[in-house]
Computed example of a mutant assay.
Amino acid sequence: MSEAAPTQPSLWNLPNALTMLRIVMVPFFIWFFVVDGGAHGWWRWAAVLVFLAAIYTDKLDGDIARARGLITSFGKIADPIADKLLIGSALVLLSAVGELWWWVTIVIMVREIGITVLRFVVIRYGVMAASRGGKLKTVLQTAAIILYLLPWTPAVTWLAVVAGIVMAAAFAVTVITGVDYVIAAGRLRAAGRAGEQGRP
């Protein structure tokens, strides 16, 4: 007697709900940031708190998905998209108010959007989950953005220097992991095409 195929977790689960919540929080983060023109007052603190809460949902949904066996293909795709919406909006806002060089934001966003598109291009051959390098990239980007978002960073020299160093590290890892993902996508596509050709 053949064994029954393992049951796939439902798309309607807590980790996916948290991922969608993170997406919903992005407009609130943007509004809190721009409501007073990016000034370093209470609205800026509200933006920081929303950003921190959204980032926490990223950690929480991953922990729950792994602990309860609720990892889905939808989650593998939606989770990085939610991250890119949050991180991307923060980078654009910081550049728009002159606190971060535009070329840094542009390179990071081109990498992020490009890898997302690449994931969809090769999805017929398999899902490219986030690598360890990709997760490190997210951690560094998040840490750098939080430092830049803090209302007192521009007024504290050493804190501004730390923010710049962390952002430089995030930038480097972002570019390196982007190249790694392109190579991984090429291998995934080649393996998938070889499998298709080998079928009768």
Rank of each mutant, 00 (worst) to 15 (best):
A39S: 13
P9N: 11
E196D: 12
L94G: 00
E99C: 01
R68P: 02
V179L: 11
G134M: 01
L11F: 14
A194S: 14
F29Q: 01
L85Y: 11
Y148I: 02
Y148E: 01
I55P: 00
G98A: 10
Q197N: 10
A67R: 15
V117S: 10
I87F: 01
A168G: 10
L188A: 08
L52E: 10
L52H: 06
V97D: 12
G37C: 10
L60A: 15
I146M: 07
A5I: 10
G98T: 10
R193E: 14
T142M: 05
T72M: 04
A67F: 08
F32M: 14
N16V: 09
I55E: 07
I55C: 05
L150S: 01
S131I: 09
A47Q: 07
A4G: 07
A185W: 01
R119S: 06
R66A: 09
F29P: 00
M128A: 03
T105I: 09
L159V: 08
G198N: 15
F32W: 13
A17V: 13
W152T: 04
V24H: 06
I87Q: 03
Y125H: 14
V182Q: 03
L140I: 08
V107R: 03
R111D: 00
I113Q: 10
A191M: 09
V121G: 05
R68G: 05
G41M: 08
F28E: 06
I165N: 05
G69K: 09
I145Q: 03
A172E: 09
A90E: 02
P80D: 07
I165T: 10
V166D: 00
G195P: 03
V92F: 12
Q197W: 12
A155C: 02
D58H: 04
P80F: 03
V34L: 14
A190H: 12
I81H: 04
I113H: 11
V110Y: 09
A96K: 06
W43Q: 13
V182L: 15
